[in-house]
Design a protein around this nucleic acid. Structure first.
Lengths: 181, 181
DNA sequence: CTTGATATATTACGAGCCGATATATATAAA
DNA sequence: TTTATATATATCGGCTCGTAATATATCAAG
């Protein structure tokens, strides 16, 4: 899924500036399964604008750069729907933590414990945020479904780390005590 | 984690050619949380070789391009350990499927059902492979831990899809019957 | 009261990675 | 016989990421 389609997806939920689209990928409903940086968002918006898939409305602001509000055109909405009908490829996960933990027996047990504890805390924080506020729009069962999937997967990951941390530490020589902060 | 470190990690489990390293990322113990293509592996191996982190041994073959077997040098092993001590960033997930399913209410229910069924089947297949063959080396508790985590997360994902598929289909107007293949 | 951090807002650039393609050949299946 | 699959390496364009540059406002800390 390229940056252009991702931007169309965000804009389908309402008009937004490039900056707001970036925030949507950091905090919004797509944040746990897609990312996009300024370096891909702004060129994508320019291309979409040139192709007539989005409309731009410059909104002057006091003492700040003019905000460019992008909104979906009918043509853009059709392009999004067409992209949604394409067959999705397999998911891709990139986890430096799991790569590092693959070599746990070569690392100080205290450090392994710290890494796992930190990640458990991160998962719990994300879960609290995702379960607490409901940022999905009304009449969006798809978004609710995906949000539930994110929660289920994060919970499974946190639970696994909690249940098997001490076992791993025992195997690599840690006594499970020194990891306490 | 850049391509060079990834290659060092694979080579720490034994000497291999570029082609075999690619296969390790498709089928081996890293496959479910890291990817690498030829376009990143071969330049990485050249750079590692130039820096003395890996040694190359050309192995002629009958009627095939000569295979270049790369192996870790002591300097390379130190570089890997140093990289493992760096603080890992957050995990990144890219899922075109979840992006598409976010807009499920705009798609034909039959197609949504097909997409979910196909992904459940994919997860079950991966789980069977991961649970069946034990491709981790002996005395590698780190690899076992990571493998268990992959299994736990995949199982949670497959279970969620199975348990909530019909609910989603009902919400978007599908009757849950037409999706049967 | 001044410094620093955080937030809004866009653009540009270098580094790096992915996917596809080119090149060669062997084997097995259709 | 043709096609697909597997082995094996190299390269190239295009896309994306992370960072920095630019500009300003607000808020908190010292």
């Amino acid at each position: 899924m390229d940056a252009k389609t991702l931007c169309l997806g965000v804009l389908s939920r309402g008009a937004a500036s490039g900056y707001e689209i970036k925030k949507a990928f950091e905090e919004g409903p797509f944040s746990h399964f897609h990312q996009a940086s300024f370096g891909s968002i702004y060129p994508a918006l320019n291309a979409l604008s040139a192709d007539g898939l989005v409309a731009v409305r410059a909104q002057a602001q006091q003492k700040r750069p003019a905000k460019k509000i992008y909104s979906l055109t009918p043509k853009g909405r059709n392009a999004l729907l067409a992209a949604l009908m394409a067959t999705p490829g397999p998911d891709a996960v990139r986890s430096d933590l799991l790569f590092i933990l693959s070599f746990a027996q070569h690392l100080p047990p205290a450090r392994v414990g710290q890494l796992i504890n930190a990640r458990i805390a991160w998962y719990r924080e994300m879960l609290a945020r995702m379960e607490g506020c409901d940022y999905t729009a009304p009449n969006a069962p798809g978004a609710d479904f995906v949000r539930g999937m994110g929660i289920a997967v994060y919970r499974a990951a946190a639970d696994y780390l909690e249940r098997h941390r001490d076992e791993l530490l025992a195997q690599i020589g840690g006594d499970g005590l020194e990891v306490a902060e």
